[in-house]
Design a protein around this nucleic acid. Structure first.
Lengths: 114, 114
DNA sequence: CTGAAACTTAACCATCGAGTTAAGTTTAAG
DNA sequence: CTTAAACTTAACTCGATGGTTAAGTTTCAG
């Protein structure tokens, strides 16, 4: 009964369930390409702990790392969140009618772009 | 640096990270007020296992249970997902260029297939 | 009153998650 | 060449998670 494709959703939601990881992503959203140690600096945990969080984010497909010399730059990949957002969108009708507004907007833009 | 209010977001994303729990919520989205045993029926796990999932969902504020006689009805509470959706919305700009894809996704969700 | 249905609780187990410290590797600087 | 910076890996702890079976409680049906 459990669908195989849900594995990506599992990893995405699981990755987002930790406040440190959400903070890391939020940081990269504002300033992409930060190094591991720059990312780690604000947090009261050890560097290996941050490494593990980055590993989780990488495994969820939310992050890539590129090495240049001895420093490693981290880059956000937001796409997996789209699926998570799509899953949540189903429930939007329970708290707002904004779904219709969003769809109308998207429809209008789609037609506009031809 | 870690905000206290994030605890709710932790619980919400954590609750959504399990495919069984997502399936339980999806079931209630289509048919609210199902009993515990009705909810449990489709799953290949024991009733106590489902009970634990329901506990997690309750703790995350995504579910309430009302007892009538010896049967317990489960009711979806979607509101906590609004905060999760709000968190994700920040990243929307990274994929909203692909309007057709998002639109299709929303449309599919709205029509209510798996 | 008896028994079964519908949970619920308890006790247990294996694995995972998030953290630690310590040691290793690679690269740049002095 | 030596050392330090910037990771990385390893080994460990400990509590949480997701599952089990077994036993208990409450309510309804016969």
């Amino acid at each position: 009964m459990v669908k195989f494709q849900d594995a990506q959703l599992d990893r995405t939601f699981s990755a987002l369930a930790d406040p440190t990881r959400r903070a890391l992503l939020a940081r990269l959203e504002r300033e992409d390409g930060l190094s591991v140690s720059e990312l780690a600096k604000p947090f009261p945990v050890s560097l290996p702990a941050i490494m593990k969080h980055l590993d989780v984010l990488s495994d969820a497909g939310l992050l890539t790392r590129t090495k240049a010399g001895r420093t490693v730059s981290c880059h956000l990949i937001a796409e997996p969140m789209e699926e998570a957002m799509g899953w949540l969108a189903r429930y939007q009708r329970f708290w707002t009618e904004r779904l219709d507004a969003l769809e109308a907007l998207l429809e209008a833009r789609r037609k506009g772009e031809g």
